[in-house]
Design a protein around this nucleic acid. Structure first.
Lengths: 116, 116
DNA sequence: TGGTTAATTAACCAAGAGGTTAAATATAAG
DNA sequence: CTTATATTTAACCTCTTGGTTAATTAACCA
């Protein structure tokens, strides 16, 4: 699982990480800001690890400012993931269309020929 | 990692599984059809396992027809995943806009006042 | 019945993910 | 120089993932 797209999807496959991205979509945040909502459920090092997964996937960029590490969201890998999905979603919708058309034909042809 | 969205993203986080979905986007296929391109790299049971991951994520539906198991793609979970992403993509693009606006302000204000 | 093809299950293994606690680092502030 | 705050690293543990080979099930065919 070394390719970028896999890393992106893997990063998204965790509700904690998705929540952190959601938080970051509202603006920059330090590690402890991000950790806040989760400290009831897990330790700070656990959050650091999640953050690292997001960083390695390129979804988050971490700066430095004194002892704080302000984190920013980077949407680019997201766009690539969406692109991958859309590419096939089109095919899937076409499949649905074909199915729809097929069913329609069957129904229309039920009387074995056109009406009128 | 028990929620549907996580299962979907996790299922997509593997190039073998993505390739299987890509194949299925061209139409129905049996397990051995799907396995074909990968049998140089892995065994059939490995493919079965990948398929099971896709099934549990609801991305693939497996029927039966004699000894074959015709597999079909189900795009619905995909749509939900895209929806999740789009929801935040909007925010991300806005962030980019704000960044752009900020840089623009800085440049404009460089001469400390408006040019005539 | 016995054989062939398609696919799954079982039992196992190595590596990775996600968590922990305790110790270390980085920066600021007395 | 010491202390406080923010964050990371180290060492460890358990469960899951992704793979294996060997055996099993399911359905057809002769």
């Amino acid at each position: 699982m070394t390719d970028p797209l896999s890393r992106t999807f893997a990063a998204l496959a965790d509700p904690t990480r998705r929540a952190m991205l959601a938080r970051l979509s509202e603006g920059e945040a330090n590690v402890s800001d991000l950790a806040g909502p989760f400290l009831k459920d897990m330790s700070l090092p656990a959050v650091t690890k999640h953050l690292k997964v997001l960083e390695k996937a390129g979804l988050v960029r971490k700066g430095r400012q004194a002892q704080w590490r302000p984190c920013q969201l980077n949407g680019e890998p997201l766009r690539e993931a969406v692109d991958w999905m859309e590419q096939y979603r089109i095919a899937w919708e076409e499949q649905l269309d074909r199915l729809g058309a097929y069913l329609k034909t069957k129904t229309e042809g039920a009387g074995h020929g056109r009406r009128k």
